[in-house]
Amino acid sequence: MDMEQSRQKRSFAPRALPHEEYFAPGHRGCQGCGPALAFRHILKALGPNTVVAEATGCGEIISSPYPQSSWRVPWIHTAFENTAATAAGIEVAYKVLMRKGRIPEERINVVAMAGDGGTGDIGLQALSGALERGHDFIYVCYDNEAYMNTGMQRSGLTPFGAFTTTSPAGKVSKGQSTWKKDVPAIAAAHHIPYVATACISYMSDLYRKILRAAEARGPAYLHVLAPCPTGWRYPSEKTIEIGRMAVRSGVFNLYEIVDGKKRLTVKVRERLPVSEYIKAQGRFRHLTDEDIAYIQRRVYEEYEALLAEAAQI
């Protein structure tokens, strides 16, 4: 089945997904790499008329050791903090070259991909500029919640309490001392046509959102939680389960904002205690029950606020 059939049927069961692989095996990702799985399916959903600009980071380094590449679509890496700008350059180039009749008129998905640091820390300025200018492109943040490429240093998107090598738990520290930066909200503040959060454990939700992002005329921002066994300290076979727990506990919520209207796309009937998610990962091993209770309270409040916001519309 190709993507067009899946799209028409709006069916994203595993057997209905495209068989073409645009992210080739042989990449150097860790065993159980969440981001690699995200790349694989994002490209399946978008198909071959896609060009990817990727930031320095795990995704770049595991996929492009010269003279090999895992990419079966045109792909470019230039630097760390500028992926949105690089993608913007590609987008306008296609636009003007088509207008001038130098290249054939066709729909090409221009995709920028960066990790959480490349998006929300060092890449935030370029991201904001590109969103504000309204380029017709899809920005994908694959969020593994720290600088995993350089060995697990904290980013602004590392969750509260998590141990990283630069937010270690020590005698006077509980690990990351700040709450996760809400980059999707920052993206939404640019009033772009489409913003969504997604997780590799909810594949049909992810597919639906990639397709909506591709259909949007103008910038689309997709924030994909992609668990990392190496940095989060859980066994490699648990990648999908950990993502599922992040959503079921309300730690990471799946929603979309279409033309400013927010909607929860995966509603959790019975919420999992946050402690189950936290205790499944070594990066939170040092937290006390009290710490976990604090996180639980805040997660609860945020989830209720999200429900209220989504219900108003």
Partner: peptide, 15 residues
């Protein structure tokens, strides 16, 4: 320019 001309050539690397 360090261009890789063969798409998906990482299949040459057996993980």
């Amino acid at each position: 320019a360090c261009i890789v001309f063969e798409p998906g050539s990482s299949v040459q690397y057996y993980t």
